[in-house]
Design a protein around this nucleic acid. Sequence first.
DNA 1: TATATATTTGTAATGATTATAAATTAGGAT
DNA 2: ATCCTAATTTATAATCATTACAAATATATA
Lengths: 138, 138
Amino acid sequence: MRKVIEGVTEMLLNRNIKPSYQRIKVLEYMMNNRIHPTVDQIYSALQNDIPTLSKSTIYNTLNLFIDAGLVRLITIEENETRYDIDTSNHGHFKCVECGEIYDFSINIDDLEAKGISNFKINDKNVYFRGVCSKCHKM
Amino acid sequence: MRKVIEGVTEMLLNRNIKPSYQRIKVLEYMMNNRIHPTVDQIYSALQNDIPTLSKSTIYNTLNLFIDAGLVRLITIEENETRYDIDTSNHGHFKCVECGEIYDFSINIDDLEAKGISNFKINDKNVYFRGVCSKCHKM
DNA sequence: TATATATTTGTAATGATTATAAATTAGGAT
DNA sequence: ATCCTAATTTATAATCATTACAAATATATA
């Protein structure tokens, strides 16, 4: 049995999203750069490929992807919205020194959450803040 | 042995914050209304007591409290910053129907976070989103 | 090819937060 | 009590991210 790697165009079509050039490029960028980018990072990176690109398009596209479950919003800091192509359950660590966001695996479902029984839970988020090993050495 | 209840004025003095009228009122509000309020909620609630109150003061005061470790920032939604007087380790649940934020207790330290060994962790945050039992019934 | 629809773009509007400077308040020294 | 200094509050302007909107462009269909 062979695992078929889903291309970005197929990813979009599977979710009934028309694969326009801009959408393909944004999704491609997120697949290839797993850095939980901000809108500005995506915008800057794609300007070579799409000189006429508008920031509105990035916002539109990302909101579309979120609704389709293709990407996830990360709001560790109030002023800095980031987007994650990895929608599986995992935690995020933000280094307050270098600003980088690291993924870590965590079994959130193992935890018992007292006080919210009978609540319908849609999504779970875990994020830590601190200093990463790289910055800690210095 | 008797548990001495710390008054808001003492809470401020203990952290070397001058207990001005505005600061006392903001802290008092947060102690008496454990609803993870927004700046606007605090502002509206205090206008009877302090008719000349400015929103800048609320922002200044809350930032001061955060630096002093008196309150904690909650950023579940990107556009909606909330403040929590309970700085102990606990989780937050936001109901997408009624908007209310519930506390729940959770032992985050029981979890093993793979991939960030040797990282210095300053704070841990857990938040869930979904529908609360009240809204779910309807 | 013509027409309808979807997408992208650029600009303006919105809203939350911060910056700044003036006004007010509080505290200490005389 | 009065004066002086420093801290705090206030009001306004500035900033910045995001959304709204309408025109322009591209795409699909008949």
